[in-house]
Each structure stands twice: as structure tokens, then as C-alpha cells.
């Protein structure tokens, strides 16, 4: 009945290993490219400043690892929300 056990459970240490690797590598790969993080930062600032005035000198961005997932966390201090900004329509560029 070995095959039934294998089929119905994925409890071996292998699945844990795979999951942990997938998560740690998101982190590792994000760590090795400061250029990518810079680009992301610039893009996020340009989107957000359409809607609000922010203190771009105090932005914090990082990858946080929760149990089973990775979260991209950005802390962006808001100075003032702008009024009456229409969202971009499909295909419209910033």
C-alpha cells in the first residue's frame, strides 16, 4: 500500500524542502539586484505621486518573509492626498 500512502499524502520532507527553497530564493534573487529594487522604487514613486504627495526621502521597501510566502512591503509616508485625480484609463501612460 506504499503507493496509496504516497498518493494521498505529501507529508515527506521533500515538499517542505521545495517550499522553503522557493521562498528563500525569492529573497536571494531580490537581494542580488539593487538595480531592480531601484527601478521598482522609481516606478512606485511615479505612480503614487499621481495621487498623493509623499516624502520620498523616507520610503522603506523590503521583502518580508512570512511562513509560506514572501511579501513586498513598502512604507511610504504621505504628506497630502491630492483631490480629484482620475485614475489612468486602460492603455494610458503616466
Amino acid at each position: 500500500m506504499g503507493f496509496l500512502k504516497r498518493f494521498f499524502s505529501n507529508g515527506g520532507s521533500k515538499s517542505v524542502a521545495k517550499e522553503r527553497l522557493q521562498i528563500v530564493l525569492i529573497h536571494d534573487r531580490a537581494d542580488i539586484s539593487p538595480e531592480m529594487l531601484d527601478g521598482l522604487r522609481r516606478d512606485i514613486i511615479s505612480v503614487i505621486t499621481r495621487y498623493m504627495e509623499i516624502d520620498s526621502s523616507r520610503i522603506e521597501m523590503d521583502f518580508d518573509r512570512a511562513d509560506r510566502s514572501v511579501a513586498f512591503v513598502a512604507n511610504i509616508p504621505v504628506i497630502r492626498i491630492k483631490r480629484g485625480v482620475a485614475p489612468l484609463r486602460d492603455g494610458e501612460q503616466l
Partner: peptide, 16 residues
């Protein structure tokens, strides 16, 4: 060990 689910198999490693 792969059969017992206690070791990453080749496809797992390739996926990653």
C-alpha cells in the same frame, strides 16, 4: 529517498 518523498527529485530541482 525520492520514492519515499524524503528527497527533492530532479523535476523539483529543475523547477526551482
Amino acid at each position: 529517498m525520492v520514492r519515499e518523498g524524503e528527497m527533492l527529485d530532479v523535476n523539483d530541482v529543475l523547477d526551482i
